[in-house]
Write a protein that binds this DNA or RNA. Structure first.
Length: 302
DNA sequence: AATACGGGGTC
DNA sequence: GACCCAGTATT
């Protein structure tokens, strides 16, 4: 086991690099609001920055605060979400807006427990909102930070498939004690992972901590967990079918007849199961025909 | 601890 | 065609 990496030896160059190279993202602007930060974090759950940015701008222009989202039609919310993926996140975001209005008078809370209690907010998002919206200390551990620490501190090519307690403890040991420093480290370490210490082709030559990186020192060994990482398929899965149904309902001007839904997918059984699941999830609504001769229609929830 | 959950860009 | 993306909720 190599000598433990001194937190400051990693932090100082990374934060300095961040001052120079931070992207100019709208949810980082001086006029940002806690709600805007929360919206960005939910949109960024499994969706890349480049796709979120335009959607976030349009969303925030249309619904600047949680009360605006709370009052909106769910159908409009789902259409504005468009193709950001996992539309249940849009549903949760609206539930979250309503919870912020009802529980907190329209102000995003800044304490961990209250944030975690909001729909769609898990450990990462709660920590990120604390740091980026309120400048408070928290342990922000997303896929970027996990990778940076796995390489720089643990000498591994990639973090383990599932987050471990040891990993959280390691991450916590790098977080400065003060609020401002912790928030800065969170943003800087994430940005390094996003721009330099990337999953695919890391730009080690441009890395501010190449001299202290354990992975680089070890000769950039391969991924030890490669055998246990299974890539999730998409083609032919329920996720693809659900996506097609949601796209049809989103783009439709009015109710969609049963036969239009039926034409979406060749496997009638799978399609049926997926539509039923969407109804159960609250992502779609089935409107029965007025009599036995008129077919049912489908639409987004109001 | 595993699994479900979108969709698109990139190598 | 595989891999990845500022994860969360459920089982």
């Amino acid at each position: 086991m190599p000598t433990a990496l001194d937190p400051a030896a990693l932090r100082t160059p990374v934060v300095a690099w961040f001052e120079e190279h931070a992207r100019d993202l709208p949810w980082r602007a001086a006029d940002r609001t806690p709600w805007g930060v929360l919206v960005s974090e939910v949109m960024l759950q499994q969706t890349p920055v480049v796709r979120v940015e335009p959607a976030w701008r349009a969303w925030m222009r249309r619904w600047p605060g949680p009360a605006d989202v709370a009052a909106a039609s769910t159908a409009d919310v789902l259409r504005a979400w468009d193709r950001l993926g996992y539309p249940r996140r849009a549903l949760r975001l609206q539930e979250c807006a309503r919870a912020v209005v009802e529980r907190h008078g329209g102000d995003v809370p800044d304490d961990e427990a209250a944030l975690l209690a909001l729909p769609g907010v898990g450990s990462y998002t709660a920590a990120a909102v604390r740091a980026f919206a309120f400048g408070r200390r928290s342990v922000v551990l997303d896929t970027n930070v996990r990778r940076v620490l796995a390489r720089a501190a643990a000498g591994a090519a990639l973090p383990a498939p599932a987050q471990t307690v040891a990993e959280v403890r390691l991450a916590a040991s790098f977080v400065p004690a003060d609020d401002a420093g912790a928030a800065r480290w969170a943003a800087a370490s994430m940005e390094l992972g996003a721009l330099v210490c990337t999953a695919r082709a890391p730009r080690c030559d441009a890395c501010p901590v190449r001299d202290v990186c354990a992975w680089r020192a070890a000769g950039r060994p391969g991924d030890a967990h490669a055998d246990r990482r299974r890539t999730q398929a998409f083609t032919g899965t329920d996720r693809q079918v659900r996506g097609r149904v949601m796209a049809l309902l989103r783009d439709a001007l009015g109710p969609v007849p049963q036969e239009a839904v039926d034409a979406l997918w060749p496997d009638a059984g799978q399609l049926r199961r997926c539509v039923d699941a969407l109804l159960a999830d609250g992502l779609a609504v089935r409107v029965p025909g007025v009599d036995d001769d008129t077919p049912a229609t489908y639409r987004l929830p109001h």
